[in-house]
Amino acid sequence: MSMDRRQFIKIAGMSALFGLGGKGAFEFLRPGALEASEHGHGVEYVPEEPAEVAKRWGMTIDVQKCGEPGVVEKCIKACHSTHNIPDFGDSKNQVKWLWQDDYEHTFAGNENSYMDDRVKELPFLCLCNHCDEPPCVRVCPTKATFRRPDGVVAMDYHRCIGCRFCMAGCPYGSRSFNWFDPRNALNQKEYNLDFPTRMKGVVEKCNFCVERLAQDKLPACVEAAPEALAFGDLADPDSSVRQILRKRSSMRRKLELGTKPSVFYLV
């Protein structure tokens, strides 16, 4: 999974050539297959407008700042209205990309009875960790979940067969299945026409706002609460996130499983 910048540019260049020669025939065979096939067929993801290209996007979440009133709520609202997340109003069928939990449950298995009570009560934002070694990608039988060269674990909702193997594989509970038709449970007032809705029977999760990254914008949650959240290239020693991680001590969830999460909690 490691690739330096030059290598990436080389592959991207090669695939551009590939694209020139082969796209027509390929499209004719299987419409849409090209866009969805970044991970396996030698055709690598190339952003339309070459926005900032990272080798591994990552996020830091300042848990203290999240404890201030309204911060967590505005992040969740920004995410869910940007991505047309349905609200079925019950916990069984719930779809969620970004939500909050407490320390004890977010870091289940690392409970510390003697911990500072203040930390215990702080809200921890939970989302897909965009793991460097993602089990969800490993188990998916159709490559509907795939890891992009920039580290984002993305999904193709049109290819997913809804087997939910990835939900069993993700050790963080980050993935949601559309148990019912999500289009019936949208908030009509905050409907975002620029982002697709999904259909019933497919899995979805946080996508690190790839659609915004392609336009050189920060993820919606980071834009909503820049005081608490930061986003940048973990592979670049001078990036914002790396500078923060140099100064603050951080935690990641379930490191013992070797998934190498890209989301860091600052305590």
Binding site: K92, N93, Q94, W179
Partner: peptide
Amino acid sequence: GLGITGMGRDIS
């Protein structure tokens, strides 16, 4: 949709 079953986001 599969929501008519007992499965949900935790017991998938």
